[in-house]
Design a protein around this nucleic acid. Structure first.
Lengths: 137, 137
DNA sequence: ATAATAATTGCACTTCCATTGCATTGATTT
DNA sequence: AAATCAATGCAATGGAAGTGCAATTATTAT
């Protein structure tokens, strides 16, 4: 079992108290979070710090950004073996229009998408909107 | 050949000079446009008017909104036989990271997406990012 | 045709999220 | 311990989306 310190260090992220707290927060959340969500969880910390922390995480590939169409960027921890940058590993996201939660459906891989001649596909983003399991039950 | 007036009327949109101009602009563009694009094309008109016009078009289903992940909402005319609201008719969008253009690939329908039990899919948004035919050539 | 009514447009303003500059604090290295 | 570099906090900015209200224009009814 890796500690948070080890995880951060393995990704060349300098370990600070703040970063460890935010990482922990992301682990505990099972859904994608907005910057405001993080902000509300750490009211003592400055918005900018949180913003830059998440951006650092993103750069170092331990967090990926999700654009679920709500207009607000959300973030979620990558899976252990996630290679966000690799096209074939892309999973889809589900946005519940009822509870406004966005969930990474890591089990559901995106089917192969064909694009017309001349187009070069580098990245695929797929968001399904609807009602999640908790809200539909 | 339908005139713009006829198209608008058939969708229960009251015909005004402004609306005809914006419709014409959208027809001539082959890519999805942002509000700023429209704004730049009609500098004499007020932003709000353009905004509300495009919202009206959207409501009346002659324009659909595209969220290509750039953070800025884009709009494009629906195809003649487009039924944006019908899930099975959804097409995908291609966003070129080089020229920043977003193109409707109306020929490429989105494959059926399966979601886990309990989830109800109502809408699917799929954006492929990469290099478009003009930029890759 | 004209008055009454309703929809559209323009202006001003607000809100919200994302982002940056700069000073300060804190951690690392020499 | 001094020097260096990264991280944090504060303040401010920018951009896009959206709203209220007054003025204008179109539509309907008299």
């Amino acid at each position: 079992m890796e500690t948070i310190e080890q995880i951060l260090e393995s990704k060349n992220i300098r370990v600070t108290a703040m970063r460890m707290l935010i990482y922990k927060f992301l682990v505990e959340k099972e859904v994608a979070v907005t910057l405001s969500d993080i902000e509300n969880a750490f009211e003592k910390a400055d918005r900018t710090t949180l913003y830059r922390t998440i951006k650092t995480f993103e750069e170092k590939d331990i967090v990926h950004q999700i654009d679920d169409g709500t207009g607000i960027t959300k973030y979620a921890l990558c899976e252990k073996d996630c290679n966000c940058e690799i096209e074939t590993d892309l999973h889809l996201h589900f946005h519940c229009t009822n509870c406004n939660k966005t969930i990474c459906l890591t089990e559901n891989k995106i089917p192969k998408i064909t694009v017309p001649d001349g187009f070069i596909s580098e990245n695929v983003n797929l968001v399904v909107k609807g009602i999640c399991d908790k809200c539909s039950g």
